[in-house]
Every structure is written in C-alpha cells, then in structure tokens.
Amino acid sequence: MPDLDAIKTEVRRLLADGVVEVVVAFKPGDTPLHPQPAFFHSPEEVDSLVHNGLCQNNLATFLTHLPKTKKVGMVVRGCENRSVNALIVEKQKSRENLYLLGVPCEGIIDWRKIVEHVGEAVLAVHENSDEVTVETREGQFNLSRNELLHASCLRCAHRNPISADILIGEPLPEGDPNLARVAVEEFESLTNEERYAWFQKEAERCIRCYACREACPMCYCTECFVDHIEPRWTESGATPAGMQGWHIVRAFHQTGRCTDCGACERACPMDIKMTYLTEKLNNDMRKKYAFEVGLDIQTQPPFATVTLDDKNRFSV
C-alpha cells in the first residue's frame, strides 16, 4: 500500500520550493467511498491529501483543464502516467511543465460493489493488498480486495508508473500482459449476432450524460462530434441509433490512444461496459502495429502517422 506520509512530504516540498504551482491529487470526499480529485496550491493544504484504492478517477483528465504553461505536479498511478505520456505525445502538455509523483497501484476498488455487500452506511474503509475492511453501523466486514476491483484493473499490465520524476514506494510485480488479450478473445469468440446483441444491450442503457467522455483524459476536444450540429454525425437523442452511434464512434476515436484505465466505466451512472470495445482496438494496435500507448513521449499512435513508405497505404 502506498506510503501516504511520503507522498505528502514530497507534495509539500514541490509546493514550498516552487517546483510546481499546483499538485493534482485526491482529498477525502463527504463519505469514505468517494474521495475527490483536488488541487493543492500550498503546503498547508496538503494535510488533507489522500491516496487509496477508492480514488477512482484518472487524474490526467484534469491536465487539459489547466493552462498549458502552468507547472503542474500530479500523483500518478500506472495508467495515469501512461495517459499523461499520451497527452504529451499529442502536444497537450510539455514534459518540462510537469512533475510526476509515481505511486505503484494495486488496483481501483469498485465502490458500488462495497455498497452491494454492506449497504451505504459506510463509516470507514481500510485496505491492504488482500483485503478491504469496511466499517459500518452494523459492524465490520472483511471483503476480498480482488473481488472488488474493476475489470480494467484486474487485467492491468502496467501497475507501476513508467516515467515518474520520483517513485514513492517499491515497484510492484507487473501484471500478466496476456490477461488483456483474454478479455478481448472472450468477446471475439461470440458470433456476429451475439456481439451485436451484447453491444446493443450495453449501449442502449445510455442516457447521453457524457460522463465517460469527461472522465477520459484523451477526450479533450473543444467540440465533440456529438455536439456538432452541421453536419450532424449522429442522432442527438437517447434513441438506439443515437446511443449506438455515440458508443461506437467514441471507441474508434480512442484507437491507439486508450490506456485501458477504465475511468469511463467507473464514471458511467448506468454501469455500461465500454472497455470491451476499446480493449479490442488496443489489442489490434498491439497485434498489427506492436504499439502500446503511453510507453514513451515520442511515438505517435499508428493512426496518427503517415509516411511515404507505408506499405499498404489506407488499408490495415
């Protein structure tokens, strides 16, 4: 588990020494289940900083909320570090204006699963690598950490931040990269009709709130295709065509850009599964182009590049 005091000490130092103007991390929410992303501007504010398994957002999404030239510090886990790198590749931030505090990650806990197990009256949550202990008015419940993790975290192959300026805590053993493929293959093994039925069932619960878009670090367009009026790319409403249009195009815009952090699914108020689509595309990127996003800050995603000696131009 991350050493919270060590994180705070480093964050205080960054702010006190003026290394950065702001540090993006988490603070406690009104209930233990919902820590909040927070912006720390002075060392005195840092007392309230938290970092635990319930911090469900990908903080890299806030990078494009802040001015490009602002010196920003960020507490990053494996996926967040890779998202930051992907944003640097896409010129949304320069590395000089960033200071990354890396924290190895043991996976993000699904608070909804906790509520399903013990109800809402949660007073406190303690965790270690194997177990999550939840205190409620009715007593104490010990739950298996693995059973509470999100799907993306269970198949995560990059638990350690790869290009942090400082790593707090010992690196963890990395996850099995084959797990990501297994999830995709499960979907691929279905017939066309079954896949479409699956897609329909998920997409059609959509309420078009765009929490998935806003939670995603890579969805930073000033004007999203769904907000475009002339021409209109997809139906505006919560109709089957509109909902499917949104989900399929959103996924395709992520090709070679998605780190499979799962923030989209965690943000969704309707529990819609989405990462099976983006993981399929990630898998194609790995298979066809040996490309994985966010491993460095130079390599463009394959679909963002074109060279004169491309073998098969305009085809995969």
Binding site: Q36, F62, R208, C209, A211, E214, S236, A267, P269
Partner: peptide, 20 residues
Amino acid sequence: QSCLGCGVCTFLCPTCFCFD
C-alpha cells in the same frame, strides 16, 4: 474545480427538467 462537466447530476436529478 474537480467537476468534470458531465450530465450525471442533472440527468439523474428528479427536479432538473431542461430540454433541447
């Protein structure tokens, strides 16, 4: 500050009624 700008709060809200 930490608001994402999504529509969860308002779409789930029973008294929000704005439409387009």
